[in-house]
Simulated scan of single mutants.
Amino acid sequence: MNKVWWLALAVVILAGCSSNSSKPPSRYHIDQDVGPDREVDLSHVPDAVPKVEPRTRAGNKNPYTVLGKTYYLIEDESSYKERGNASWYGKKFHGHKTSNGETYDMYAMTAAHKTLPIPSYVRVTHLKNGRSVVVRVNDRGPFHQGRIIDLSYAAAQRLGISKTGTGPVEVEIIVPGDTPPPPLKPDDRPASHADGFYLQVGAFSSAASAKRLRDKVASSMNSRVFISEFNAAKPLYRVRIGPLTDEQEVNRVREQLPAVGVYNSHLVKD
């Protein structure tokens, strides 16, 4: 009997050791994101009020890489407008730091975006019910395929997507005073890229036309898309992708272009 008792005790001890040796818990207290514990009416929460704010390095690392993909910040967001799916994030991240070091509050009118400078202000409109909100972008994300913005729980509830999880939206920039702060240029691109190749996908006499194409191409590209201005008697605005380090990368980018309606491009080297 004593032998059986000691054997049972050993099994219990080993089980406890096995449990304690598992990987440490995440800094987030819950695994699956959820909303508040009980129903909360947030219809009274006011929109974010756009104002001119300084751009700092906090939250604006450019470029940055997440899950193997590299993202470049939009250099001039004054004409940004995009349609796609919005999602939301809540209790899992509530109280933790956002990308620029602020504390995430799921009851405030904020959002996460992959490439807009931080902070930015955008109007988000639900394409099915017509509801709209103004939110302040202070975080990075969402990094799920097919989603263009991650809203706070409060913003999602006001739009009517807090229960569905996602919804089709239009996101449009709001620039306080009509003039955005100077953009933060890419600061940590590998030196080997400096002499790389560029794909030119368009050239325009109109800056607005060049911006529209740049934004359209950038919406589906992991590589940097920018406008190179050629100053002559009449300015020329050239939309380019790069730098691209080798032929394999050039071919990869070219294969993605038809998806955004671009069928002609040529290689240049600056």
Rank of each mutant, 00 (worst) to 15 (best):
K3V: 10
A8S: 12
V11G: 03
V12N: 04
I13D: 09
I13G: 13
I13M: 15
L14T: 13
S19K: 14
S19M: 15
N20F: 15
N20D: 15
P24T: 14
P25H: 07
S26K: 08
I30N: 03
Q32W: 04
E39T: 09
E39A: 12
D41L: 00
L42F: 00
L42I: 09
P46G: 02
P46L: 04
P46M: 04
D47S: 02
V49I: 12
P50M: 02
P50Q: 08
E53I: 02
N60H: 01
K61I: 01
N62W: 01
P63I: 01
P63W: 00
Y64I: 08
T65Y: 02
V66R: 01
G68E: 01
G68C: 02
G68F: 02
K69F: 06
T70K: 07
T70N: 11
Y71H: 03
I74W: 00
E75L: 08
E75A: 12
D76E: 01
E77Q: 05
S78C: 00
S78F: 03
Y80K: 05
K81M: 03
R83G: 08
S87Q: 09
S87K: 05
G90L: 14
K91H: 15
G95F: 09
H96A: 08
T98M: 05
S99V: 03
G101Q: 08
Y107P: 05
M109N: 05
A111I: 01
K114G: 00
T115R: 14
L116F: 07
I118M: 08
S120P: 10
V122Y: 00
R123Q: 14
L127F: 10
K128C: 11
R131T: 08
S132H: 14
S132G: 12
V134T: 15
V135R: 07
V135N: 06
V135H: 01
P142Y: 07
G146Y: 08
G146P: 04
D150Y: 11
D150T: 06
R158C: 04
I161S: 08
T166V: 14
T166C: 10
E170P: 08
V171D: 02
E172C: 04
I174Y: 05
I174D: 10
G177R: 06
T179S: 14
T179C: 02
P180M: 07
P181I: 03
L184W: 03
R189S: 01
A191G: 10
S192E: 12
G196H: 07
G196I: 07
F197K: 14
Y198R: 11
Y198M: 13
L199V: 06
L199D: 10
Q200G: 11
G202H: 12
A203Y: 06
F204R: 15
S206Q: 06
A207S: 13
S209K: 14
K211F: 02
L213T: 15
L213P: 09
S220W: 09
S220Q: 14
N222Y: 13
R224A: 13
R224Q: 15
F226C: 03
F226L: 05
I227S: 11
A233S: 11
L244W: 02
L244C: 00
T245W: 15
D246K: 10
E249C: 09
V250F: 04
V250W: 03
N251L: 13
R252I: 00
V253L: 11
V253I: 13
R254M: 13
Q256W: 05
P258Q: 07
P258V: 03
V260Q: 12
Y263L: 13
N264P: 06
S265Y: 05
L267W: 00
L267K: 05
V268G: 01
K269S: 12
D270G: 06
